[in-house]
């Protein structure tokens, strides 16, 4: 999971990032509208947290431009102006949810999880496939109701694949969904994590198939 935080108050952006990184999400921070647009179009974010009051291009404009360019990344709006107009405007422009400042970090986290789930057509907080259950809230994995321990990277890979069960996910997409601006993950590293994950999932009736030249598909066996 990779989230873009667009917020010009640095200490708030950092607090949000720190909270999201706490559940192993990759987080990028930008402080103005122009950077937000560039980043959102360049990387496969799972969600964007967008403050409306930004220097230069404001949040609503960023949102409008993203939607115009066909980006359907779920967007959570942060606003300090609690007016109906602003909320309605934001939602009408294609925001998925909004949160009024000041907010509770736990609520922000829950809403982010919810918009990510919704964007994949899921309603339940537990992702299931084969005999595996992935709890998105406390981030744990069970096979037949027995918890198993997964290293951080494998957990992220599994989450990304589970959300897209039956669909092809490219190696680049997987790599980028786990890195931040300054990080890099080679495709051979992805291959390594995938092969480890395969072994762990074998007893759960799940297989990760490689489609040559395209990527991976998670399938129930």
């Amino acid at each position: 999971m990779r989230v873009l935080v667009v917020e010009d108050t640095k200490s708030l952006a950092e607090a949000i990032s720190q909270a999201l990184r706490g559940w192993d999400y990759a987080v990028d921070m930008v402080g103005n509208g122009e950077d937000a647009e560039v980043a959102a179009l360049a990387f496969p974010y799972d969600a964007i947290i967008l403050d409306l009051n930004l220097p230069g291009m404001d949040g609503l404009e960023v949102l409008a431009r993203l939607r115009e360019r066909g980006s359907d990344i779920p967007v959570l709006i942060l606003t300090a102006r609690d007016t109906l107009d602003e909320r309605v405007n934001g939602l009408d422009l294609g925001a998925d949810d909004y949160l009024t400042k000041p907010f509770e970090i736990t609520e922000l986290e829950a809403r982010i999880r919810a918009i990510i789930r919704r964007s994949h057509g899921r309603k339940h907080a537990i992702l299931r496939a084969g005999r595996i259950a992935f709890h998105t809230v406390h981030r744990s994995v069970e096979i037949d109701e027995r918890a198993i321990n997964l290293p951080r990277r494998e957990m992220l890979l599994l989450e990304a694949l589970l959300y897209r069960t039956g669909k092809i996910v490219s190696k680049d997409q997987l790599a980028e969904s786990m890195t931040e601006f300054d990080g890099e993950l080679s495709s051979s590293a992805i291959e390594l994590y995938i092969s480890r994950l395969r072994k762990r999932l074998a007893p759960a009736d799940l297989a990760i198939r490689a489609v040559r030249g395209l990527g991976y598909v998670l399938e129930e066996t």
Binding site: S11, L12, Q18, A19, L78, A80, P102, E104, I105
Partner: peptide, 13 residues
């Protein structure tokens, strides 16, 4: 509201 958000978020962290 913005500094209040910072206070709440940082204290939670």
């Amino acid at each position: 509201r913005t500094p209040l958000s910072v206070v709440k978020a940082q204290l939670e962290l």
